[in-house]
Design a protein around this nucleic acid. Structure first.
Lengths: 202, 202
DNA sequence: TGATTTTATTATCTTTTGTTAACGTTTTGG
DNA sequence: CCAAAACGTTAACAAAAGATAATAAAATCA
C-alpha cells in the first residue's frame, strides 16, 4: 500500500468526522508523517511523552502496562483503520503509563503534537481541526463509558460472552491471555470461564 | 447563591479551558439555562435522551444504572464545580443507559444539545466552543483512561486504598455501598476489605 | 528441520468475592 | 416524635478468581 493510498484511507476516515475542501486537505497533508514499525516495535513507551497521534493504515497494535512485579498487562488493541495514541500522554504531554507495541509490521499516518497544535491554531483549518479533535475525543469517551459500565455491572464471564458476540475481529487475531487482561482477569481464569461456557452451552 | 454568582463560577470554570472576551461571553450567556433539582430528582433518566450538559454550581449527583434484577449500581459522582451529563446519550442523542440523580438539592447551569450545536456553528464563537468541547472531552477521556487502567491492573482492595489516598471529597459525602459499586465490588465485600485494611494497618 | 518460545489448558490449593440473612445503628420522612 | 427505611457490619456457605506448577500443542525462527 503506497502513501497515496494510505492518504486516501486516512482522508476517508477523517471525513467521517469532518469534511475538508481540496485546499484544506492540501494544507492538512503537509502536517502528516508516515511511520512504519516492525513487529514488536513501540509506537509509545512508558515514561516517554507520546508525541504522535496515529492512524493505522495497515497492521495492529497492543496497549499494555507493566505491573510492579514485571508482568505485562494488556489494556487494549487497535487495528487497521483505527486511531491510536497514548491519549493521556499525548494530550497532556506527560510521560506515558503504557506501551503501545506493533503486533505485526504496521504502518501509520501520524500527526505530531506540535503539528496538531499548529493545525488547531491555523486560521484556515483551526475550526475544523478542533471539531475533529472534539469528535474523536467524544468517540473514545463513549467507548470508555461503555467499558467502565461493563466493569461495574458485569462479571468477567458476562464481559467475555459479550465480547464473543460483538468482538469478532479481536478474538480471532489476538492471543487469549491478552484478551484475559483486557477483560480484567488472569489467563488461567479466562480458560476456566471458557470451559464453563462451552461445556454448558455446547 | 444567585444567578449572577452562578454565572461567575461557571465562567471561571470554563475559562480554565478557553478564555472569552466580554462580547463572546455575552453571546454565550444567552444559550445557558438555570436548573434546580430537589434531592432524588433526575438530571438524566435511562431510556430518555439526555438533552442537557450541566455545570453543578451547588450540590452533587450520582450516576447509576439498574441491573436486570432491579438492583441499582452506582457508576460515578459529580460535585459542585464539576460538569455532568450522560455523555454518550448527550453526544450521540441516544437514549441514556444511566440515571443521573441529585444526591441533595442541586443547581446547574446547563447548555442544551441544540444550543450547543448553535454555539459550535456560531461564526463568532464556534472555534472557541469547539475547543472547549474538545478539551472537556479530552479531560474526561483521561479520567476514564485512568479508571479502566485501575480496573485492569489493580485489585478492588488496591483501588480502595488509592481512593482513600486521593478521594477525600467522595469518601466523606457518599454512602459506602455507592463507593463499593464505584469500585466494582459489592457493599459486603467492601466492608470486608475495610476490615482487612484497618485491622492490619491500624 | 529442529530447538525454543509461546500459548492454552488443567490441577491443586489459597484467597477473595458473591449471596443471603441477621443484627444493631443511623437517617429519613411523615 | 415515632415508624420505616437505609446503612454498615458480620456470619456462613457457595462460587469464582488468583497463584503456582505441570503438561501438551502450536507457533516461531535460526
Amino acid at each position: 500500500m503506497d502513501q497515496i493510498d494510505q492518504l486516501k484511507a486516512f482522508r476517508q476516515y477523517i471525513e467521517t468526522f469532518v469534511v475538508f475542501t481540496a485546499d484544506e486537505w492540501h494544507e492538512l497533508e503537509k502536517h502528516l508523517t508516515f511511520i512504519e514499525l516492525k513487529k514488536k516495535d513501540y509506537f509509545a513507551e512508558r515514561g516517554k511523552v507520546c508525541q504522535l497521534f496515529g492512524f493505522i493504515t495497515n497492521g495492529s497494535v497492543r496497549y499494555f502496562s507493566v505491573r510492579e512485579d514485571g508482568e505485562e498487562i494488556t489494556n487494549y488493541f487497535s487495528f487497521t483503520g483505527e486511531l491510536t495514541s497514548s491519549y493521556k500522554s499525548f494530550v497532556r504531554q506527560q510521560p506515558s503509563l503504557v506501551y503501545i507495541q506493533a503486533l505485526e509490521d504496521t504502518s501509520f499516518i501520524c500527526i505530531s503534537h506540535s503539528n496538531m497544535q499548529k493545525l488547531l491554531n491555523n486560521p484556515q483549518l483551526g475550526h475544523k481541526m478542533e471539531r475533529f479533535g472534539r469528535l474523536v475525543a467524544e468517540y473514545y469517551l463513549c467507548c470508555y463509558e461503555d467499558r467502565v459500565q461493563a466493569f461495574i455491572t458485569q462479571s468477567p464471564e458476562e464481559r467475555y460472552v459479550k465480547l464473543l458476540q460483538d468482538g469478532q475481529g479481536v478474538l480471532q487475531r489476538i492471543p487469549q491471555h491478552y484478551i484475559a487482561n483486557f477483560l480484567g482477569v488472569t489467563p488461567v481464569s479466562l480458560s476456566r470461564i471458557r470451559k464453563r461456557i462451552f461445556t454448558a452451552t455446547g
